[in-house]
């Protein structure tokens, strides 16, 4: 456990030293303030515009940070051969993977807290009340980001950062489009329908973490949906980290 904590702490410090992290974060904060300009053009819909644009900004910048930093996470250690030093200190490959994941997750948590600290007061100012649903939406987005970190960690164990980023982006695109599969499955033959449905159930459906529409309109979300989505996300994170550990163990390091 202490090995995981040490790796996580070092990864956290290392990613916090990354210039790209600060560049993206600065851009995100500027963009969040920029939402107020769009709000002024919205014909009385300021609160909705800042809520939507702000959430979309936090979401996209979190995804970008997780993909950029995650794609290098393990690959760099292997390339620079620093992994040999770490693994020689009675740290298992699984502990190494989990520690790396938690380290980068902590960095993303800091980034999300900073962005939320800018975003929520802006929403409060325009809507006149604190938006708990917007805070919950940020939490759900963060959970989705953790899936991307786990996925990027997995790809980082066996492929280059560029390829890893492309694969993660593909999962992002597909993960938000699997909702159409049951719709189209009905129009196909029974075998293709089962295939579509199998893909639908197995592939991560990232729309489960999207409650931005509800946040924008001040609608409530059933707590059980949040619970199921949370459990769904945690299982995927665990699955990707397990595969990453297996992939790293299979390598002759």
């Amino acid at each position: 456990m202490s090995a995981i904590f040490s790796i996580a702490k070092n990864t956290f410090k290392e990613t916090l030293r990354s210039r790209i992290f600060y560049a993206i974060l600065a851009l995100a904060v500027i963009a969040l303030f920029g939402t107020t300009i769009f709000a002024s053009l919205s014909l009385g819909q300021e609160a909705k515009i800042v809520t939507d644009f702000g959430l979309a900004g936090i979401y996209l910048f979190s995804i970008i940070i997780s993909i950029f930093l995650g794609a290098n996470l393990i690959y760099k250690e292997i390339e620079q051969r620093t992994i040999y030093i770490i693994l020689s200190k009675a740290i298992t490959k699984t502990e190494f993977i989990v520690g790396k994941f938690f380290g980068l997750s902590a960095t993303l948590l800091v980034a999300n807290l900073i962005m939320a600290a800018v975003y929520l007061p802006i929403v409060w100012y325009f809507s006149g009340s604190f938006s708990w649903i917007a805070l919950l939406a940020i939490g759900m987005q963060f959970l989705e980001t953790l899936i991307f970190i786990a996925l990027a960690t997995l790809f980082s164990t066996f492929t280059s950062p560029v390829a890893g980023s492309v694969y993660t982006l593909l999962v992002f695109v597909i993960g938000h489009s699997t909702g159409i599969l049951p719709k189209y499955a009905e129009k196909t033959s029974p075998i293709i329908e089962k295939l579509y449905l199998a893909v639908y159930y197995i592939f991560p459906n990232l729309e489960k973490f999207n409650i931005r529409l509800e946040a924008a309109n001040g609608l409530s979300v059933p707590p059980m949906l949040i619970f199921f989505a949370g459990a769904y996300g945690l299982i995927f994170i665990a699955l990707f980290l397990m595969i990453a550990a297996v992939a790293l163990t299979a390598q002759d390091l």
């Binding site: 769009f38 919205s42 819909q45 909705k48 515009i49 939507d52 644009f53 959430l55 979309a56 979401y59 992002f172 695109v173 938000h176 489009s177 909702g179 159409i180 719709k183 990232l206 729309e207 973490f209 999207n210 931005r212 529409l213 946040a215 924008a216």
Partner: peptide, 15 residues
């Protein structure tokens, strides 16, 4: 079907 989770953002954009 294809908005990558940015449905609310796109709605505002078209508004």
């Amino acid at each position: 079907d294809f908005n990558f989770g940015l449905q609310a953002f796109l709605a505002d954009y078209f508004w």
